[in-house]
Amino acid sequence: MLAADNVSISFGGVHAVRDVSFEVAAGQVYSIIGPNGAGKTTLFNLVSRLYDVDAGSITFDGEPITRVPPHQVAERGIARTFQNTELFEHETVLKNLLIGHHVHRQTALWEELLFLPKVREQDLVFRQQVEDVIDLLDLQSYRDQIIGNLPYGVRKMVEIARALCLGPRLILLDEPSSGLNPEETEDLSFWIEDINEELDITVVMVEHDMNLVNQVSDRVLVLADGVVIAVGTPNEIQGHPDVLRAYLGD
């Protein structure tokens, strides 16, 4: 579904990602792990087109997305979250989730200025769908709260909810469990399974929590210093000598 072929990028002489190739099959939960500075988030930023690749190509459903404008990545069905959350701070949870529906709008500017019945109906449909996502992730009590006033753990969930509102076929989760307490992390693992199985969304995530990775992943890719070290099932990765070396040194 999502494939990278020999992708490289460097920032001022530092090779953040070098000749990385991987392939995510539809329906998988695919985890990317590795020490800090390994280039995991950079890889995400390459997929969502915040950076231009120096070499190599990325394809989604067989079509290259290496040169499309960033917003088209979302239109094609890839949603993402951010490591330190990038929510719309001054707005309510509800509005954040409604913004998630942006790619599905079908109204023109002049229709919106006059708020024709068409626009109203569209908004009610969005509203209904937002409610489904809120139910799924148990966010009912935060619906009308401003993001800026929410605790970090809730923000993380709101960000996942917002990504789901896009109605994606693939979701990129950047360290979803960072900043969550053990209880929240456990809930998270169930939600990731729900998202994957019930909503039929392929999940790619960067994650440090190995328990979570082992629990939900189908495949794991290990990255260190911008290079792929190993790919395999969680079990294969656990005992892999190269992985141990990457984390612990020689």
Partner: peptide
């Protein structure tokens, strides 16, 4: 509020 995130929302 966030250009980067707006882009990611399409």
């Amino acid at each position: 509020d966030s250009e980067i995130s707006a882009q990611a929302m399409g």
